[in-house]
Simulated assay, not measured.
Amino acid sequence: MPGSCILVTTRKESVAKRMESPHVVRLKLLPEEMCWLILSQKAFSERSQASREILEDIGREIANKCQGLPLAAKAIGGLLQDKQGREEWQNVLNNVIWK
């Protein structure tokens, strides 16, 4: 259909080449602070200010481990919504999955 287009997102340039895309846009990784904002928005959506203050330091370390990937920050933030205390957040920070 004229005027239609398909948007393909990938981290692998070889996939874009295989799709024979005429326009490839290379996005940069997000700064650490932006990852923190995305993660904290999800993780703290229903928490008190006191809870935020208790968990923020661990949350910032977790956001740093997202390495600028917005989807990772959003997904981990969603996971952290259900984690109540420092110990549970610390378990996420120290999890072997980061390796």
Rank of each mutant, 00 (worst) to 15 (best):
M1I: 06
M1W: 13
P2G: 11
C5R: 05
C5A: 10
C5I: 02
I6H: 03
L7Y: 03
L7H: 01
T9V: 01
T10N: 04
T10H: 04
T10F: 07
R11D: 03
R11M: 00
V15D: 13
V15Q: 10
V15I: 15
A16N: 08
A16V: 09
A16E: 08
R18I: 06
R18K: 10
R18H: 13
M19W: 03
E20D: 06
P22G: 04
P22A: 04
H23Q: 12
V24H: 07
V25P: 02
V25N: 11
V25I: 14
R26C: 00
R26M: 01
L29D: 07
L30D: 05
E32Q: 08
E33C: 00
M34V: 11
C35F: 02
C35I: 00
C35T: 13
L37D: 12
L37M: 15
I38D: 00
L39W: 03
L39T: 04
L39V: 02
S40W: 08
S40M: 03
S40A: 14
Q41I: 05
Q41W: 07
A43M: 10
A43E: 09
F44L: 14
E46H: 13
E46L: 11
S48A: 11
S48G: 12
Q49H: 15
A50R: 15
A50E: 11
A50V: 09
S51D: 07
R52E: 13
E53S: 10
I54E: 14
L55W: 05
L55Y: 06
L55V: 05
L55M: 03
E56D: 08
E56G: 05
E56Y: 06
E56S: 02
E56I: 01
D57Q: 13
I58P: 10
G59D: 04
E61H: 11
I62P: 07
I62N: 06
A63Y: 07
N64K: 14
N64T: 14
N64G: 03
K65G: 05
Q67K: 12
G68C: 01
G68I: 01
L69T: 02
P70C: 00
P70F: 01
L71A: 06
A72Y: 09
K74M: 08
I76H: 02
I76C: 06
I76S: 04
G77P: 02
G77H: 10
G77Q: 01
L79D: 01
L80K: 09
Q81T: 11
D82L: 13
D82K: 14
D82H: 13
Q84I: 15
Q84N: 10
G85M: 03
G85C: 05
G85L: 04
E87K: 11
E87C: 05
W89S: 08
N91W: 06
V92K: 09
L93T: 06
N94T: 14
N94F: 07
N95W: 01
V96K: 15
I97P: 00
I97L: 09
I97S: 14
W98A: 04
W98F: 08
K99N: 12
